[in-house]
Amino acid sequence: MATIPDTPTAAVEIHGLHAAYQRQPVLEDINLTFPAGLWTAIVGPNGAGKSTLFHVLTGNMKPLRGTVHAFGHPIAEHRRAGHIAYMAQREAIEWDFPVSVWETVMGGRFGHMRRDAWWRRYMPARWYHPRHGDAVRDALAAVDMLGFSDRPIGALSGGQKKRVLLARALAQQARILLLDEPLAGVDPPSEQLILDVLRGEREQGKTVIMVTHDMPSARRYVDHVVLINRVIRGAGRPDDMLSDAKLAALAIARVESTAREMAPAASPLSTALDR
C-alpha cells in the first residue's frame, strides 16, 4: 500500500452542502475534505447521493446551499482551468453518436484548447496544437485502446467503452480525477487495467476520487474512504471504514431512507455486505 503523508492538504473542500431534486433532499449538510494526492473511494448504497455529489463538483447541478473549493479556490475556476476531469457512467453517453474513439478522447482536450493560439481555435483537427494529439495518444495507450482509434464508439464492447471514457479523463491531464463507478460492469482484465492506471495516476501525485461498489478493490487499493448515505456516515482509512459493522450500518440506513428507490437486483455492495 502506498504511503500516506502525515498532514495531507485538501484537494477538494466541501462546506455545508445541501442538494435536492425537486425538493427531495439528496445531500444534507455535507462537510467533507478530499485529501490531495490520495485515492479516495466514495461508498454508499444506490440513491445515496454519490452521483449527485459529482454533479455538484462538475457544475452540472446547483446546490441549494454550501460551498465547494479546490486547492483553496472556488471549484468553478479549476473547471475552467481544466484541472478537473470527470468520467461519467457508461449510460450517460449516446454511444451511437457519429464519432470515433480518437475524437471522443480528444473531447477531453476541448477545455485546454481555449488557451491555444486564437487561429487554431477555429480550425479542423489537423491544425490542433500537437500537444493535444500527444495527450490523446498517451491516454489511449495507457488504457490499451490505441489500436481502436478509428473505430466508431458504437462498435465497442462494454469494457472497451469504459476504457475509452477513462482515456478521455486521462487525456485532460487534470489534477483531480472524478470517476463515477469506473469498475461497474467491466470484464476482469479491464477492471485490473483500470485499477493499475488509477494507481499510476495516484503515484504521479494526482488526486483520484471514485464512486465504487467494489469492496475488495477498495480495500486493496484506495487510501481514503468516505461513507455516504444522504449525509456523511464516516470518512477515514479503508481498514476502519470498510469494516463489516460500518458497512452493515450503512446498509440499514439505506433500508430506512431510500427503501423505495432500492434496485431489485443485488448490487456489488449488497453482495459484499452479505458475506
Partner: peptide, 15 residues
C-alpha cells in the same frame, strides 16, 4: 459538438 455529444462533460470542462 461536445454539448451535443455529452453536455455533462462540456459542463465539467468549464463550458
Amino acid at each position: 459538438l461536445l454539448y451535443a455529444f455529452d453536455p455533462q462533460q462540456a459542463q465539467a470542462l468549464g463550458f
